[in-house]
């Protein structure tokens, strides 16, 4: 790039900035408010200063180290815009709108020298395009970060433990289960059983799209662990499809109680806890004094 061009940009800095600010203000993308103006002005001023600093007669290699601060600046701008909810296109227009202004400037200056004009436009265009792609890259990277974070959040939120009844816990499982999630479900449920002292836990898998051997193994392990702790696990929501899978894969359900629907499971669960409490009270009611009965009731509500 000719030093004359660099000088030109430096000389006309004020003019460029005014025009650029104007374009940004008028474009629909910026939901522009007067209070934003000084900030925006400072931002583009810094950007232009940085740009004219790196544009020396010999540099047009965007990958050279001199460009690093400028690239950083672009990344920051892109990140800020993404945070404000701009689309990738809108963020890119921020940089590309400068292109037009600079081209007009060059057009005026090199009116009589077409060859130089083309050369200079080519260089400038390359630089600005390069910066524009950084915007896209940053945007995509930001989105990926968000997706990753949301996936983690989903993972954490995906095992709600519900108190269905006094003595019955429920865990609806939705989507696919990988071993990380299965482990988490196992941990959460068993700890909930330990904390509440509830005797029955219903694991509902109606929301599980596909059941493979590994997933089934994990659910059965959870049921086995719950049994060792002294609780009963009921697996509900076994669709005809999943029942077929269980048969085809030859999965051994052992002594695990399975039910087709959640309502069936709740019925069975109520029977289990009902059997425990009702009989107890009746039996003690027969042969024991009122005081004994009180202590037994306390035991049950515990």
């Amino acid at each position: 790039m000719k030093s004359a061009t660099v000088d030109l940009i430096k000389r006309d800095e004020q003019k460029i900035l005014d025009e650029w600010l104007n374009v940004l203000k008028q474009s629909n993308i910026y939901n522009f408010q007067i209070s934003d103006e000084p900030e925006l002005y400072n931002e583009i001023k810094n950007f232009l200063t940085e740009l004219s600093d790196v544009l020396t007669p010999n540099t047009f290699d965007v990958n050279s180290p001199e460009f690093i601060p400028l690239k950083k600046m672009v990344v920051e701008i892109a990140q800020k815009n993404t945070a404000l909810g701009f689309s990738a296109k809108e963020s890119a227009l921020y940089i590309f709108s400068l292109k037009n202004i600079l081209f007009n400037l060059l057009l005026e200056e090199y009116e009589n020298d077409a060859l130089v004009l083309v050369k200079e436009i080519k260089i400038l265009s390359k630089i600005i395009d390069e910066l524009g792609t950084i915007i896209f890259d940053t945007f995509v990277a930001d989105r990926e970060e968000i997706i990753k974070r949301q996936r983690q959040e989903l993972l954490e939120a995906s095992t709600p433990i519900i108190n269905i009844w006094d003595g019955i816990l429920g865990v609806p499982i939705i989507g696919t289960i990988d071993s990380v999630r299965a482990q988490q479900i196992m941990d959460t449920l068993l700890n909930a059983i330990n904390d509440t002292g509830f005797d029955v836990a219903i694991i509902d898998i109606s929301g599980v799209s596909t059941l493979d051997t590994v997933t089934a193994q994990h659910i059965l392990k959870t049921a086995a662990a719950a049994k060792l702790m002294g609780a009963t696990c009921i697996i509900s929501g076994i669709s005809p499809n999943i029942a077929q899978t269980i048969i085809n894969l030859d999965i051994d359900l052992g002594q695990t109680i399975t039910k087709g629907s959640m309502s069936e499971a709740i019925k069975t669960a109520l029977e289990i806890i009902g059997r425990k409490t009702k009989k107890n009270i009746l039996e003690y009611g027969k042969n024991t004094s009122a005081e004994d009965r009180k202590s037994i009731v306390n035991l049950n509500t515990d």
Binding site: M186, D187, L190, N191, I193, N194, K221, A224, A225, A226, L228, M229, G230
Partner: peptide, 15 residues
């Protein structure tokens, strides 16, 4: 009757 087995112990025994 074995009572009060901790969750982590139960998982470990199953594994």
């Amino acid at each position: 009757v074995v009572s009060g087995m901790q969750p982590a112990v139960a998982i470990t025994l199953v594994e």
